[in-house]
Design a protein around this nucleic acid. Structure first.
Length: 441
RNA sequence: GCCGGGGUGGCCGAGCGGACAAGGCGCAGGCCUGGAGAGCCUGUUCUCCGAAAGGGGAGCGUGAGUUCAAAUCUCACCCCCGGCGCCA
């Protein structure tokens, strides 16, 4: 949620942000109008309540003195009728205003490049040596801005889907029967490889000073609404029937609402949290995309970084989170690029976002594995999380970033490290996996 | 799930129909001091009007109700503690 005072005092900033996001800027004027009407009526209401309070005070005094009060009672009853009427109007106006504000996306950071859609995202960093099938070379050179080393493959690597089905490392057919499409049974070595990824990421984050959490996998409506936005409720979030509960789509949701309605102490900032949890996503509106295998699924496990910090430090921590995530992929030796998400492709909650995309040699594309967002005070306002400051309380900034999303990283490993005989296990995972190779049999 | 006990400000805690939610702790500012401490004063949630000084309104787990008046009474729901039951 953005600050109503920002809309009141600098509506042009909000309009500009809306324009760059390709979103309605007239909403700003509707908010201002509702706000004006609300304040007008609130004034009237408060004057009436003040009058009533004074009358009730008179009654108190008179009763003490044993005087007659029935005419005063009648007066108060009359005022109460007026109060009741105008209370409804005020409440209604405030709800209308707040619903509008609630739906305004976060104000864009100055660093966000202008763009219409994902094609305008700006690659800013490249790392590693990619394996590129000859037919993909042109795409690769374009997408890597000619800034990455590569080696040519004369044969296209086998898709992760074919490998996991053929060697029984996962079963999506039976999962389809018992749960539906986009579900999977992970099996055999892939289960252990996933656990190795998780241990690797958790231990690294502990070393960097993060406190690790396994959060609740369901949240109530208030917490979920504070952590997400309305479009997430429609496209992403699973609702539990008969209960006020919603399945988290990432542990970010739980870690953001962890401090809901609290006032934090300045000396306790920054708070570096890491969550490990399954992520449940409806994937509504993604029909036809990545329908096979485990790349885009309704349920996967993820280790997430989350930070609460002083507003002046969020820029710094955004880079910190990205650096941590990059380190994981470097240690896994997976070639990647970092992109700065453009205004038209940015989600409502983020003010600025980086994605890490790993080169997938079987798909011949860079694919998203990490998303790192600076949310600034958008979530802390919605969740009513404040920091006690010397000159009054303020809203902390929150940030989140994937550390490792297991299924997508498994896909990256299968695509990048396969041979005819099996899959090489990245060195960083070997001490957890206890083998260096998954042999096809 | 059942039977008790409870939910008050940043924290502790009194109030259990009537005048500003007592008191304490913590924190911030001021006075005092050579400096600190002690002591004294003010402030410590949200919100509206106001340039400010200042003034108003709301707020006692949540929501409804009774009353001129509700932290206080009634009802429903949520959460915490204890006991019983069930249970991986």
């Amino acid at each position: 949620m953005i600050d109503i005072n920002l809309i009141r005092n600098s509506p042009e900033i909000v309009r500009e942000s809306q324009r760059k996001r390709n979103q309605d800027e007239k909403i700003v004027d509707r908010v201002l109008e509702m706000d004006r009407l609300w304040r007008e009526n609130l004034q009237t209401l408060e004057k009436l309540r003040n009058l009533k309070n004074r009358k009730v005070g008179e009654i108190t005094v008179k009763i003490r003195n044993g005087e007659e009060v029935s005419s005063l009672k009648d007066e108060v009853n009359k005022i109460n009728e007026d109060i009741e009427k105008i209370e409804k109007i005020v409440e209604d106006l405030k709800n209308q205003r707040d619903r509008l504000i609630w739906n305004i996306p976060n104000i864009l950071d100055d660093d966000v490049p202008y763009g219409k859609d994902e094609n305008d995202n700006v690659p800013i960093k490249f790392w590693g040596r990619a394996k590129v099938y000859t037919e993909d070379l042109e795409t690769f050179k374009k997408d890597s801005r000619n800034s990455m080393e590569y080696e040519i493959l004369n044969e296209r690597p086998v898709s992760h889907y074919d490998i996991i089905e053929k060697y029984d490392l996962a079963d999506t057919m039976r999962a389809g029967r018992v749960s539906g499409s986009r579900f999977y049974f992970l099996k055999r070595d892939l289960v252990k490889l996933e656990l190795s990824l998780e241990m690797f990421a958790l231990n690294s984050l502990i070393d960097k000073g993060f406190v690790i959490f396994e959060p609740p996998f369901m949240l109530n409506r208030r917490a979920m609404e504070g952590a997400t936005d309305l479009s997430a409720f429609e496209d992403t979030i699973y609702k539990i029937e008969n209960d006020d509960l919603y399945l988290i789509a990432t542990s970010e949701h739980a870690l953001a609402s962890y401090h809901m309605d609290e006032i934090l102490e300045e000396k306790d900032l920054p708070k570096l949290y890491a969550g490990i949890s399954p992520c449940f996503r409806r994937e509504a509106g993604s029909h036809g995309k990545d329908t096979k295998g485990i790349f885009r699924v309704h349920q996967f496990n993820k280790i997430e970084q989350f930070v609460y910090c002083h507003p002046e430090e969020s820029k710094k921590f955004h880079e910190f989170l990205l650096k941590n995530a990059e380190e994981f992929y470097q240690k896994l030796n997976l070639p990647y690029r970092v992109i700065n998400i453009c205004s038209g492709d940015l989600g409502n909650v983020a003010s600025k976002k980086y994605d890490i995309e790993v080169w997938m040699p079987a798909q011949g594309k860079f694919r998203e594995v990490v998303s790192a967002s600076n949310v600034k005070e958008y979530q802390s306002r919605r969740l009513n999380i404040r920091v006690r400051g010397k000159n009054g309380n303020y809203f902390p900034h929150t940030l989140n970033s994937t550390a490792i999303a297991t299924t997508r990283t498994l896909v990256a490993i299968i695509e990048n490290f396969q041979t005819k005989e099996g899959i090489y296990v990245p060195e960083a995972l070997q001490k957890y996996f206890e083998k260096d190779f998954i042999r096809f049999s």
